[in-house]
Amino acid sequence: MPMTYDVAIVGAGIFGLSTAYELARRGHSVLAIDRFGSGHPATSSTGASRSIRIAYDHPFYVELALEAIESWRRLEAETGQTILHLTGQVDLGPQSKLEELTRTVRAAGAAIEEMDAAELRRRFPEIALSRGEIGLFQRQAGTVIANAGMAALLRAAKKAGVTYLAPERVVRFEPGATVTLYTEGRHFEAKQVIVAAGPWAKDLLDGVGLPLPLAPAVAQVTFLDAPALVDRPGIAEWRPNGETGIYGHPVPGIGYKIAFDSGAAGWHPDVEEWEPDPAEEQRLLGWLARRMPSVVPKVSRTQRHPWTMTPDVDFIVDRWGQFIVAGGCSGHAFKFGPALGRLVADIVEGGEAPSVTRLGRPALRQSAPSPTAPITR
């Protein structure tokens, strides 16, 4: 007879691994299963870095980001691993967007400054600004060294007692007094199951009667060989009317990462590594030539990975019977790291999901968005 775990987690990316660690710390028996393995190139939590920022236009995300910085720092202290590289961030874009970010951040008691072109250039000398352009600067922002963060979480989770299995693919669930999880060669039982399987979650949830409007997309990021930018702030250039923006941040040991705030169609569940799109890379380097004309466009590497869009670009973290859904990352989840684990673990233990992440919210009654929809949070 298989052991019955308190909680089984399907997917050991940032959502699943941080939750496994938090639940084990709280004394639960935890099984974490991943189809490829944490940080694999096919997954949403792959790669060298992610941005981190506190400037959001919704208080839930501002508060979660502030918690995340503290949580990452605790993980650094526990594991001796450097994970955060906080150099600040410059936000540019329509005045209405900047005002909304400022209002929400300050309402949370955090600091954000409005700066004119001269002040912004002092912070980030390589930036070219148009006449009269202003922006924001937030100090609590910069970079999560993603591969280091994932490695630290995995070590901490195993040390806390998590049973970690990878590569192992869960193919279906059978609800009952406990939930049976079937992989391609064996089965396991758990009192509760967290589905944190990224773009693979939709098929698994469809199989238990929970259809969700999720749209897997393939995102692309480009790393610049630009060591002079390693201590510069990150950047977010928001565009009007929900158009695709651009973001970037420094990457220790590499230089700087830049990308569009939208993905492409064409995700397939069995593809393990995605070939870069040279045309998208050239469009991005065109933006770089206009926004940072003094930066030599020397590409270190370009890579692609999936993310999963929801209709409102908000996460899904909520209970459905014996299952807890933890996904719909919409391209902006990784930064929250261990704070996501706390959020999901609270729901496992009977807590109520925040309104912005609930399954019953109106946006989840809509059709799935286009995979190319931009990230507007």
Rank of each mutant, 00 (worst) to 15 (best):
P213N: 11
K257P: 00
V195P: 01
P278F: 03
L214A: 05
A201R: 04
V295F: 02
G263Q: 01
E243G: 15
G207M: 06
V271C: 13
W307E: 01
S294A: 15
T308F: 02
F260Y: 13
P252R: 00
E189I: 00
W238N: 03
H305M: 06
W320N: 14
P199L: 04
G253S: 13
V325I: 13
A190N: 13
A226F: 09
A190E: 05
G248I: 04
E273G: 00
G255N: 01
P240T: 15
A228E: 14
G234F: 02
Q220K: 05
P269V: 04
V313Q: 15
K202E: 14
V299S: 06
L224K: 01
W287A: 01
Q322T: 14
I316C: 04
V230R: 12
I194H: 11
F315G: 02
P233Q: 07
R232V: 09
L224G: 05
Q282N: 15
W307G: 02
L205H: 08
E243F: 15
Q192S: 14
A197G: 14
A196P: 12
R319D: 09
G248N: 05
V296Q: 08
W200R: 02
W267D: 00
T244E: 05
G286C: 13
M309Q: 08
I194Y: 08
T244D: 02
W267S: 01
N241C: 14
Q303E: 09
G209H: 09
T244R: 09
D203Q: 15
P216Y: 00
E237C: 13
Q282G: 07
V251L: 12
D203S: 15
F223R: 03
V325P: 03
P227W: 13
L224Y: 15
E272D: 09
A196Q: 09
